[in-house]
């Protein structure tokens, strides 16, 4: 037997904003025709959340469904619920041209929180993080310095960042540097 461990075991760093690795998070990639009514029904009944519109995230309790591309969703949920969710979705979508995979342990999840969260993200990604361009439950895939990452405005002043597990240490280090006291931007 083994116990699942997250990429960086919940490490955090406090500067003018706070970086935290979120520990174990469940994540499922679903690819298919997002305009399909049956698929929408299966996702809503399994997660409680509707299929999100372009670059949006819908939530229901501790489940969130994120729009990743015109044919891709990322379902976020408790780590120990992921396998059962994959089974439920696979069963519900049998016969459809879809792909449902548990990618929990292939990703690292971080939060960037505090007044300076938008400024920190804007240091590292070529994205407009102004409130009117990036509101609550907006999601934007981009790059974080040198690696691909997804940015989700999960709460006021909190940005949840999803990146590949293989670059988790890099993500934590570059975020930690960007929140260092004395490097405040004060733009957003």
């Amino acid at each position: 037997m083994y116990s699942a461990v997250s990429a960086l075991n919940g490490v955090s760093n406090v500067g003018f904003a706070t970086v935290t690795e979120m520990g174990l998070c469940g994540m499922i990639t679903l690819r298919g025709d997002l305009a399909d009514a049956k698929l929408a029904k299966v996702i809503t009944s399994a997660t409680g959340a509707d299929v999100p519109a372009q670059r949006r995230v819908t939530t229901s309790g501790d489940h969130a469904v994120a729009w990743m591309s015109p044919d891709e969703l990322l379902i976020m949920l408790p780590h120990d619920a992921a396998d059962a969710m994959v089974a439920t979705l696979t069963e519900g979508l049998s016969g459809q041209h879809v792909l449902v995979v548990n990618v929990s342990d292939a990703r690292g999840v971080f939060t960037l929180s505090g007044d300076g969260a938008r400024d920190v993200a804007a240091k590292l990604a070529p994205v407009d993080f102004a409130t009117d361009a990036f509101d609550i439950n907006d999601i934007r895939r981009s790059r974080l310095a040198q690696v691909p990452a997804a940015f989700w405005m999960s709460a006021p002043d909190t940005i949840t960042i999803v990146a590949f597990r293989s670059v988790a240490q890099y993500v934590f280090d570059v975020l930690s540097k960007a929140v260092a006291q004395g490097s405040e931007v004060g733009f957003h």
Binding site: Q54, P70, P126, R141
Partner: peptide, 11 residues
């Protein structure tokens, strides 16, 4: 045209 963002060339 797929996700609707203005992407600079580094993306």
């Amino acid at each position: 045209p797929y996700c609707g963002v203005s992407a600079d060339e580094t993306e």
